[in-house]
Amino acid sequence: MKKDNTADKPTVFVVDDDEPVRDSLRMLMRSVGLNAETFSGAAEFLAAYDPDHPGCLVLDIRMPGMSGMELQDKLNEMHAILPIIFITGHGDVPMAVKAIQYGAADFIQKPFRDQDLLDRINKAIEQDASNRAQLLETRDIEERLSNLTPREKEVLELIVDGRPNKVIAADLEVSQRTVEIHRARVMDKMRASSLAHLVRMVMRLRNPS
């Protein structure tokens, strides 16, 4: 494995068994200031894989041992979100369709223009940053939600379903004043600036995409 030394900067991980291809891609990334790490095979990449490291994966399809498509399956099993750009000199339509249907960000045939690959890499890195930001936000909401008591969670669900305090009080067989107190605590613990904000947070968890 060859790596450029930077910590959290997005990295282009290149997995290709062809050394000249790895070297030329590494030089290409460097020429535009992108951080690159190269691997000669899927197993070597998996051994070094860090799910918290942002970037994208440029992956050859045909490799001895684990193929690029098999590595994609493995990463899917691991719920990896790193965008994959497949590169191949022997691709066909069914192969490209399968790769994208299984979640690859892109699929490009060799030989390709450098700029064409760089455009796709930049797009994939942007997508990765956006996915990670969304994931962080979701985790943050989940953490706030975990601080609610079971009763406050019940009240939250009813608020989000659009029920007024009076109806919630009747549903839970408590006084309206008690509901108001629970509601205030929910807003506080969820750090919601408004009812709309609260609803947006809960909907984010219900519909993560």
Partner: peptide, 18 residues
């Protein structure tokens, strides 16, 4: 062709058949 298939699938269609 591969490029057309990839673009179509990236737009979210269900399938692309040759």
């Amino acid at each position: 062709n591969i490029d057309a298939a990839v673009k179509a699938l990236q737009s979210g269609i269900a399938d692309y058949l040759e």
